[in-house]
Design a protein around this nucleic acid. Structure first.
Lengths: 341, 341
DNA sequence: CAAAAATTGCTTTACGTACCTCAGTAACCT
DNA sequence: AGGTTACTGAGGTACGTAAAGCAATTTTTG
């Protein structure tokens, strides 16, 4: 039998009300008594029964997720995972509100953050674009004791409680190792294609990528980064242009989203078939590209895992409970044709 | 506000007791009334409050995990994850019992299964070795309405409710694709090292591996499978012998456990440094081997994820609730030096 | 030392579900 | 019609915790 508050009260020689005050940090208990109660808790190994507490509290967790709008598949995937999560989390008294802001627009993000009614909100998760205004808005949230989790794209550690996402430098390094091996120590040029060099995660991936290429595959030469704004149309024209201009390209690293455009260009000319391609984010398009041999590897972070992890972390912060650290690590997943889920 | 049993009772025009009888499948309700109640449930979108139900039920879930003993790192990892899970799951009224049987011994497994007191058990997870006796024992469990989940190694689908683990044929294919690319289309021989060809998962991995090698890398030649019994000592002598005997080996696929032995042999002679190595299971040893360039890639299944998934699946079976399907898919993880967790 | 303030105890109600008893009603069969 | 069976209702207690009000006690303060 697990000990209950009653046992704790008895053990500490105080009343149930006092135990309750201690447990819920309510005022009106002498420090000495608090200690006695805590000792009793430790001695009995008392752990609060979450089911019962939730029942009594009638608490609802109002979690706000802020994600960029725009038609790129990864964010659409994130949104659909959020929709899924919304269904299941209703069973656990969790309310998910999903807000969208313009991509790459930190002012819009700051506006949304400033507009939140802090009395109605128990936790916030956001895909961050960093700026002073955003930092200020986050500081205000944390001052109000509202936990903040960054998703996919981080801000500096001082402005959030957790980051849920991958180490993008390591992701870039991973891409480079794969690229180097797929090309197979033949000299040649590598094309880099990002969404925007203003986004921290893309910058970091590039850094990691070039680190490894220059250190371990010096026969490969990284060209200037092209920007496709994470948009299939833009990507298509930028990349078609670039490949036409630059002869001797043996590899392509697609750092951001907009895979559809990349696939279109690569399948447009047979001679592009020999280019080794490493891209990011597993979507229906990139899966197909892997199956058909257009892409050689895709680096992915699991959006569903990220959403669930963010929810667990926010809830744990609110309840002041522990999380299983290992479960919250987001993997840098490598997919090739053969290990697709 | 979420609807409660009271609302359902009112909506259906019956008493609370009747709703309760319907919900908990107790006898003594006319079919017509059952329908009325179910319609009310559907109309209101009533969902049982799990917290409250657990509290009232005072139910404890007694889950039994049966895993092979033996000193290989993967199983030790599984065990440690089970230990972890045991701590956390106590909070959710889940009791984990961990039983060990001799590895590769289906009779011992059947004995353990037959020895279970079915009245005391709510669910079973096991690392299966298949045999008629095991099948019979599993059938008995399922007849007693006890959900069965296989872990890491499967039996035929008729004898369990779920399989928690990876598709081992696909894992073998993945290993082969990586191997072929790492070797880089130079002709040569590939050494295969398994634990035992009596274990289904090892057989399947080999099949997948040879499929891809023969179809896409015909310049590579797979040699006879060597068996190391998933034991570092045995592996060491078997492999050292084999590599000494066979010249021209360019790649090694280590299908099972016993990585320590593999690493010892590979680092024993400098000329082995050029062999491309793909192994299974991420452990401290294999991580170090990746960092130091002894291994080129490791295929992994996340033991922690598997344990948590098995628990969730068993609990969902017992409670007759839904699971989030995507969350329960065990990935075929690829690790290289750069994406180690 | 008395008054004020702080601390503690006692008791009750509530959360939503499970499960029990007992009484009552309806339907069915002979 | 009478009896039997099958269903249904009413009401209660329980689970462990939260949260409140108010009384009683102790401690602090002037």
């Amino acid at each position: 039998m697990r000990p209950t508050v009653h046992h704790v009260a008895e053990e500490a020689g105080v009343s149930l009300a006092t135990v309750d005050r201690v447990l819920n940090r309510r005022p009106g208990v002498r420090a000495k008594t608090v200690t006695r109660v805590n000792e009793a808790i430790a001695k009995l190994g008392y752990v609060r029964d979450i089911s019962a507490a939730n029942l009594a509290k009638q608490r609802v967790y109002n979690l706000v997720f802020i994600i960029p709008e725009g038609p790129n598949s990864f964010m659409l995937g994130l949104e659909s995972e959020l929709g899924q999560a919304k269904l299941y989390s209703a069973l656990e008294r969790i309310n998910l509100d999903i807000l969208k802001v313009r991509a790459f627009d930190s002012d819009a993000l700051a506006n949304v953050l400033d507009g939140l009614d802090l009395t109605q909100i128990s936790g916030v998760a956001l895909v961050a674009t960093e700026s002073h205004r955003v930092q200020g808005a986050l500081a205000r949230l944390r001052q109000a004791n509202i936990p903040v989790v960054t998703l996919v794209s981080d801000v500096s550690a001082a402005h959030r409680d957790h980051y849920v996402g991958i180490d993008n430098v390591a992701a870039g390094r991973t891409a480079a190792s794969l690229m180097g091996r797929f090309v197979g120590h033949k000299p040649g040029k590598i094309a880099l294609l990002a969404g925007s060099m203003l986004v921290r995660d893309h910058v970091e991936r590039r850094i990691g990528f070039e680190q490894v290429i220059s250190a371990e595959f010096p026969e490969l030469d990284c060209l200037t980064v092209q920007e496709g704004r994470d948009d299939a149309m833009v990507t298509r024209s930028v990349l078609a242009d670039f490949l036409g201009r630059e002869p001797g390209i043996v590899g392509l690293y697609s750092i951001g989203a907009g895979n559809r455009g990349v696939i279109d260009v690569l399948t447009s000319k047979p001679e592009y078939g020999s280019i080794a391609v490493v891209a990011h984010e597993l979507t229906e398009h990139s899966k197909r590209a892997l199956r058909e041999g257009v892409f050689d590897a895709v680096i992915n972070q699991d959006a569903g895992h990220e959403v669930r992890s963010a929810i667990r972390l926010l809830k744990a912060s609110i309840d002041e409970t522990q999380v299983i650290a290992k479960q919250e690590i987001i993997r840098i997943e490598i997919y090739i044709r053969d290990n697709l889920p």
